[in-house]
Computed example of a mutant assay.
Amino acid sequence: MGEVVREFVGLPSPLVGRAGAGGHPCQGVYHRPAGAPPRTAFIATHYNVDFSEHYLAEHLAARGYGFLGWNTSFRGNEAYFLLDHALAEIGAGVRWLREKAGAERVVLLGNSGGGSLMAAYQSQAVEPNVAPVAGMRPVPAIEDLPAGDLFVALAAHSGRPEVLTAWMDPSVTDETDVLSADPSLDPFNPENGPPYSAGFQARYRAAQRARNERITDRVLGRLDALKGTRARDALFNVHRTWADLRMIDPGIEPSDREPNRCYLGEPVKANYGVFGIGALCTLRSWLSMWSLRTSQCTAAPHLARITVPSLVVHATADEGVYDSDARAIHAALAASDKTLDFVRDTHYLPESRPEAADLIDAWVRAR
């Protein structure tokens, strides 16, 4: 592996100022090979996870590329996420690559949850469509975003509202009580499975969607009740979001994944723990990110506006992204030049990072 130079990048946001302690709202680390500036550079961003030292950054830099692991002001701050604000801050990173780092081609890397986020970025850049969430002003900075030249979806989820709903425990009967459960829908009730019957799976999936819709109804009602008061928003919790039946029952969408596993280990323990996607929300961040009815963080509509060459890479032992997700992303892309490829590994590719970097490198060089 050749010498890799790492450069910290801190940039202002079009929306918020520097923190009182001095930190820039938009921050990341630019990895590049020593010597002449690379002509092609990647940018990777997530809704919440810190991507500044992304696991592929050094591997792709060693193969001759720039790699900006980029964070918006929502890194570690998911509860307050607003899509249009995040897109404006991703735009700051893309502009830096073109105007300061000297990149002639920019590859948008949508990894994990960042798949739908980077799809939304390219979609907005080529055909503005993202609207502010209820009660918020439009963000002018998203009307002129620099588009990417290539798009890569790597171990990517199909969208924030879809993944949350697929993972939700629909047996919750009281959103304020972490222990409330309808036994007839409890995925950890041995009378229900595993294995889970086709009938139970259908009832379960319908109940998951119904739970998401009930939360949206409650959120809209609370926002309406706050009108004219001293408060404009409020926080709330969403309990038990590690209960996708596929995590528990390997017979549903068989793959190379380990049975009865999620990203936090055994699903029943994770499901009743305090760490989970969407665990803490504001009313407006729910509408922006998690609601099936109102969120614009669903990948499919954005993928339908992506016409640049696109690559989808699926990890066949992924504990939370499934073959059907990867194939749906590939099918939804509007690009005429699109490729679906596979690596045998778990979600974060601990064993196959050089292989994945080689695969992406070969695909980019061919274009």
Rank of each mutant, 00 (worst) to 15 (best):
G66P: 03
L83V: 03
S116K: 10
G66T: 07
S123K: 15
L97V: 05
A62R: 14
F81K: 04
E78Y: 07
Y80S: 07
G69R: 05
V49D: 05
H59G: 03
M118K: 05
E104M: 00
V126M: 08
V126L: 14
E58M: 11
S112M: 07
N111A: 14
N48K: 02
F51V: 07
S123N: 08
A120M: 12
L108E: 05
T72D: 08
A103R: 02
L60P: 01
G76P: 09
A120L: 15
Q122V: 09
R95H: 07
A61P: 01
E58H: 05
N77I: 13
R75I: 07
N129P: 02
G76M: 09
L82E: 14
A62I: 10
A125L: 04
Y55P: 00
E104A: 14
A119T: 09
N129C: 15
G69A: 09
G113R: 07
A119K: 12
M118F: 05
S116L: 04
V94P: 01
N77C: 10
P128V: 07
E99H: 10
L97W: 01
W96I: 11
A62D: 13
H85P: 03
E127R: 12
Q122W: 12
V106I: 13
S52W: 04
H85V: 01
S112Y: 11
A92S: 13
T72A: 01
W70I: 00
H46N: 12
F81Q: 04
Y47W: 15
T72P: 03
N77T: 07
F67P: 00
H59K: 12
E127G: 09
F81G: 06
S73R: 13
L108I: 11
S112D: 15
A79T: 10
R95Q: 08
A57I: 05
Y121I: 11
W70N: 02
R98F: 02
E89D: 13
G69T: 12
Q124Y: 14
D50Q: 06
F51S: 06
G69L: 14
A92Q: 15
R98T: 08
A62L: 10
A125Y: 07
A61S: 06
G102D: 08
L87K: 09
E127L: 07
F51G: 00
S123H: 13
E104K: 10
G66N: 06
G115N: 08
G91C: 11
H54E: 15
E99A: 13
G113V: 13
G113K: 15
L83A: 04
L83H: 02
H46K: 06
A103W: 00
N129F: 02
G102V: 08
D50S: 06
A61L: 05
N77L: 11
F67A: 04
R98W: 09
I90G: 00
A125C: 11
A101R: 07
E89S: 01
A79E: 11
V107L: 04
